[in-house]
Design a binder for these strands. Structure first.
Lengths: 191, 191, 191, 191
DNA sequence: AATGAATGAGGCTTCATTCAT
DNA sequence: GATGAATGAAGCCTCATTCAT
């Protein structure tokens, strides 16, 4: 693939990311994407076999970056708590930056086995990365704890995606609260 | 609405719940639903204005029941931990019973403002119910804690929906783990 | 299928016969057919699964009638020569009546195995019917002679299909010439 | 046109003959042909104005050769029967060599007046050549007899094109049978 | 001359919705 | 109320052709 082609490949992916993110898979027309990219409808089919495949490519690229950045952040930090803080920050910032792409996460094509496999693979790799952090710290049942931690973060993403007025400061506060809750619990009196 | 009518109304909702749950909104045809219900396609339009409205009605009925049952369970239990246990159990059992309806939760129609409002309202009511439990126990920042708790549960639902071999015993174990984590944290050495 | 439906089924077949016959499979649009039939485009798909299937149905109906009429004519006639005359007349009249449907015979969809099987079956049945006539008369190698006879007729159909000014009288003359040639040869001096 | 150009012109025609022959006009893509020829898609348009024109050129080249070879064979032979034998042999061998190119003869582009004129011209020239042979032998109504003779041959080609196991020996046998039938008739008892 | 990326018109098919019975 | 045949808008995708390099 030549330089120019690679570029167009990226242009299409960028455009698809944008439009799929705003409208979701089913409500997006190929022509929406190509018009936004400033190319002809047929051109998309030179780079991707179908609408489904384009969606998969968009998802893949986004997730790969997510995992790559996550690994980098985890490596940078030292100690359990700083590492968890990095995970939390990364998770929430990821959605923060994609505030206007909420549909990407909720409206994927159904019944597409390749996409299903892909998604499952990414979730597994994400969990494995967190689990490793917990294992290193000698935590028991790291599988369960990794899921719970990610779960908390994932619920909080909803506020970010759907509340317009979320600030970076609030985001930082959530990160700290989440890590603290995860480490020490809600500190409620047992009753 | 006469008795017979009410019944047909329910029959359609049952059928729609079934099919939407299996295929998601976009991949479901009206004819799938009406055939499964044993009625003619046109009949559906006597009871619901459109496919979207039917989906909304299905969602509404399911959520209302979810919240009603939740309230009942919370009222039955006494004390913070038993109440949280009820919440956790209810959340996970709900998905456990809907194992084969995963698509219902992931493939709603896009860009339908009414559905968006509805979903937001249900999530808010769910959170409010949990928040109330935490407030009663004098927990600070109950808003955040409620979200985190629900988040943990919601992540765990994924295992239930997508892992075929999940048993009720494992479910119970998750409930207890989650509540303990929430109350006391992961008890990791601070590092 | 109700009476009205059967009728529409026939209306579509008639229209398809007309248009396919004039333009051939590939140059015919579904909308050509449905407009000519005075129905909506989608209606065709209530009666036939695809353009290919419609073409096959048209072909089938036409050939079945051809073979049915052939059998009837053969049965009516008595003796080898009268029977052969009936065959020749039937063959040429068939094309005479379809003067304006030449494309039907030349532009079927490629690579459609079902159509291929169908066509082969019809040709075989046609040949078998002629062969039977020859066998009854005690002719040796009836297989070869049946093919040769049909071949002569089939070549003559070209004149009918593509020469505008062909009359019924000429047709009758061809019938007689063909049968005579077939029976007695060209009577050329052997050289 | 330089030597190299002439060569590429031929390469394209060869490739087109191959692919059109296998798939027919409509199911053949320009890219099928150019890929098979090892050239770029655009290159074809340097030598031929359109897909239709390429098809016409392929047909023309093939028919011209057919008629040239026919004339040569007829000239070589002496006497009516030997000449007819040459015609029959040529006709059947032509298709025998094109066993795998059946689609060429059945799926030409519709509605192309130039092709129609061309085909008609070739058929006329073919018939004229045979007619001349018959006229020389003093046969009456040579027009009709020429058509009938070609018709018999043309029907027999079907066996060659569609029966996989046809041998050269069988071909020779058919040639002789056909000529004998044509000369002396089926020798059936008149009934 | 040769290339092959880009174009965009056009066709098949689907399916939510309507409405005459 | 119930039916289901009919509608037709809409979208995915193909592929002959062009043209800048």
């Amino acid at each position: 693939m030549s330089g120019a082609q690679r570029e167009k490949h990226e242009v299409i992916l960028d455009s698809a990311f944008e439009i799929f993110g705003q409208k979701g898979f089913y409500e997006t027309k190929i022509s929406d994407i190509t018009e936004h990219a400033g190319i002809a409808k047929g051109t998309m089919y030179l780079y991707f076999k179908s609408k489904e495949e384009l969606f998969i490519a968009v998802t893949k690229r986004d997730w790969e970056k997510f995992l790559r950045d996550l690994q980098f952040r985890i490596k940078q930090a030292d100690g359990l708590m700083p590492k968890l803080q990095q995970v939390a920050e990364h998770h929430l910032e990821y959605y923060y930056e994609r505030k206007s792409h909420g549909k990407l996460f909720f409206h994927a094509p159904n019944n597409d086995p390749e996409l299903m496999r892909l998604m499952h693979g990414f979730l597994t790799r994400y969990m494995a990365a967190v689990k490793e952090v917990l294992e290193e710290a000698g935590m028991p049942d790291p599988d369960f704890y990794a899921k719970a931690f990610i779960g908390m973060l994932d619920r909080l993403k909803m506020d970010i995606l759907f509340e317009g007025e979320f600030t970076r400061e609030e985001l930082q506060q959530r990160v700290e609260q989440t890590v603290r809750l995860f480490m020490r619990g809600s500190e409620a009196e047992l009753s």
